[in-house]
Design a protein around this nucleic acid. Structure first.
Lengths: 211, 211
DNA sequence: GGTTTTTTATTGACTAGTCAATCAACAAAA
DNA sequence: TTTTGTTGATTGACTAGTCAATAAAAAACC
């Protein structure tokens, strides 16, 4: 029974169904029918609103990236010092909204997609650059010239944690993951920072341990 | 013109063609025909020798993992001290034989495969455990109780470097990649090691810089 | 040594199934 | 009656896997 103004509702449902379906299957090899079914409509309607399968994937990827961006900005707003901002940047990656089983799996598959589809690669590159310049911005005052190399380490580490999470059967544990990255960061700062006492940071201290 | 004793030749050709084809396509979505064609035979023959597509993939994955294992053992044999052994363990990941564009891409896709196919996951788990226990074995004497957590960081970092490499257009640079990981490791050791002078390690010093 | 039989290598043609994309048709709201 | 929403049915392309047939080498036999 056709109601009017369905377009945004349908699009949203499809995007979310896509992420869940990719997460469930662990692959980009999901059919439009599967996605449409989960979103509660026919596959023809999915094509009607998005045009094609690739566009559905791209919309889903854009959604994940924008949700991630939102999380980053939300946390950065609360942070004052450089140390707090660094923690915010790292923690955003492991926020519950991003670091869930299906979303992590979808991320992994988008990485693969970015190897094939130029637009996907572009999106990912934007995210990379933003994270990198954010990190460098707050690392520079603390470690000077080492900022870039340390940023690269943190970036790779975050991706690695995601990758390994996608292989686990256990549900994601934000605290453990975040701690792993922050611990490394703390080490880097303690080692080559010279303008502030190492203890100032204490990134981890404020969280309880797990694992 | 049938020559006899072709089986091992064909199998090898198919395995290598599989890796190249996956790397080229950036996806597991390659057809048996494409693989067979690159290996210089008909798709029927590929089926004849391997049975099915999944088995072809598994054979390719096993080949990559065994090549990696070989590299590790080769380097470990030359290493004497714990520090040298740690460096060997890290460097093996970035040896030219493993850290090439197609192989990196294949790795990424095998990660995805491991989310779906139980046997693929098992293979990857074996590799994980071996790397982990190797790292811990040589970290423990240097850093004691922190060995496990540091090992986890290094492992995630290595995976992250692979992942990011798969997104680049530029050819892989072993030196840069290795340095990124070894630098982190050095930091960790310098920070929490207490039984030996930090300078002893100098993991990076012996390599020229790049990037 | 020559002939037959068996084994191994090889492929073109075919089957059965899947799936993205399209379209014609229908239904409610404006 | 025009716009918006919706779907079942269909098309067209593609692909994993099978099979029967062919051909050379090797082995067995005389």
């Amino acid at each position: 029974m056709p109601k009017v103004g369905m377009e945004p509702v349908r699009r949203k449902a499809l995007v979310e169904a896509t992420i869940h379906e990719i997460g469930r299957a662990g692959t980009l090899d999901v059919t439009v029918s599967q996605i449409a079914k989960r979103a509660g409509m026919s596959s023809a309607l999915a094509h009607h609103y998005f045009g094609g399968k690739t566009q559905i994937f791209m919309a889903a990827m854009r959604h994940i990236l924008s949700q991630y961006g939102l999380e980053v900005r939300r946390r950065l707003k609360k942070a004052k010092t450089h140390e707090e901002r660094l923690r915010a940047l790292v923690d955003a990656n492991f926020a519950p909204s991003n670091f869930r089983e299906e979303v992590v799996s979808a991320w992994m598959n988008f990485y693969v997609l970015a190897q094939n589809v130029e637009e996907a690669r572009r999106l990912l590159t934007v995210y990379y650059h933003r994270l990198h310049s954010n990190l460098v911005h707050d690392l520079r005052p603390l470690v000077g010239g080492e900022a870039v190399i340390i940023a690269r380490r943190i970036e790779a580490l975050i991706d690695g944690v995601y990758l390994r999470q996608s292989l686990r059967n256990e549900p994601a544990n934000p605290a453990t993951a975040s701690e792993l990255v922050l611990g490394t960061l703390e080490n880097e700062l303690a080692r080559c920072g010279s303008q502030r006492p190492a203890a100032t940071l204490s990134l981890i201290a404020q969280k309880e341990r797990s694992e």
